[in-house]
């Protein structure tokens, strides 16, 4: 069995987005359900985001290292690794570097600044939970908002139903545009996903969400006020919304 040290070495030395995607997804699944099995659709999405062979190869590697285990129910995270992996992934997420014209920060600082901004600007906002500068649960105007740093754009659909059931708006911040996040666009056909989730990629100054305004408007204002920048919507997003009948891509020009 691989030691914690070996795993950390592996992540730091061999760190790849795919590996981080898989491990983060596996952690989300552990948190979400008892057996921690990564559901097939999520694996298919990861294969879509990268490619099938690379995914298979990385899973094989992680199985060999006993970070993942194969059971009759499917692939899941080795339970012994959950704690240390969780800590380490959080550290890696926090340490991701963000470079702007006049400022360099880590993702952890960026998220922390965002939350501080929200506390200043959005009156009566309450911070209900905070987890190591990587995850916050905020309450504003009777709505709950979960803000989370993430590596992977892949696992958000896996939590959408639960977020909708719990009436939580789930926003993830990560370098998604570089990881084919447009492959996730078809999920906007699902009400739980489109109504309760939001992607923000400050690395590429982009976002994808049909939020309902509210607290998410402050995200944009934060980015403008603190970093002089804007979250743009990638062109594929309104095109896809048009194709699934949620928006009309105007041809009136």
């Amino acid at each position: 069995m691989v030691s914690n040290l070996t795993l950390i070495d592996y992540l730091e030395k061999e760190s790849s987005y795919l590996c981080l995607n898989i491990l983060e997804s596996a952690l989300v699944c552990c948190r979400k359900n008892g057996n921690g099995v990564i559901p097939e659709p999520l694996l298919r999405d990861l294969a879509d985001l990268f490619d099938c062979r690379t995914l298979e190869s990385e899973i094989k590697n992680l199985l060999e290292r006993k970070v993942l285990i194969q059971t009759g129910e499917g692939i899941s995270l080795n339970r012994e690794k959950i704690h240390s992996l969780s800590i380490h992934l959080n550290q890696l997420k926090k340490a991701m570097k963000l470079t702007f014209t006049e400022k360099k920060v880590t993702a952890g600082i960026f998220l922390n600044e965002l939350v501080t901004y929200l506390e200043q600007e959005a009156s009566c906002l309450v911070e209900e939970e905070a987890n190591d500068c990587t995850e916050y649960l905020l309450v504003w105007r009777d709505n709950r908002y979960r803000l989370q740093l993430a590596f992977s754009p892949g696992w958000l659909p896996a939590v959408a139903d639960e977020a909708a059931a719990d009436n939580i708006y789930f926003a993830v911040l990560g370098p998604f545009a570089a990881q084919n996040w447009q492959k996730m666009l078809h999920y906007y056909g699902y009400p739980a996903f489109r109504n309760n989730t939001a992607y923000y990629d400050p690395w590429h100054h982009q976002k994808m969400n049909i939020s309902k305004g509210g607290l998410f408007s402050y995200f944009d204002w934060f980015f403008r006020d603190r970093y002089g920048s804007k979250f743009f919507i990638p062109d594929e997003f309104p095109c896809k919304l048009h194709s699934i009948g949620l928006l009309r891509y105007n041809d009136e020009k």
């Binding site: 976002k207 939020s211 804007k230 928006l247 891509y249 105007n250």
Partner: peptide, 11 residues
């Protein structure tokens, strides 16, 4: 419909 002039930058 999306605006024909000016992108929606904030939602």
């Amino acid at each position: 419909a999306l605006p024909t002039f000016g992108k929606i930058k904030i939602r």
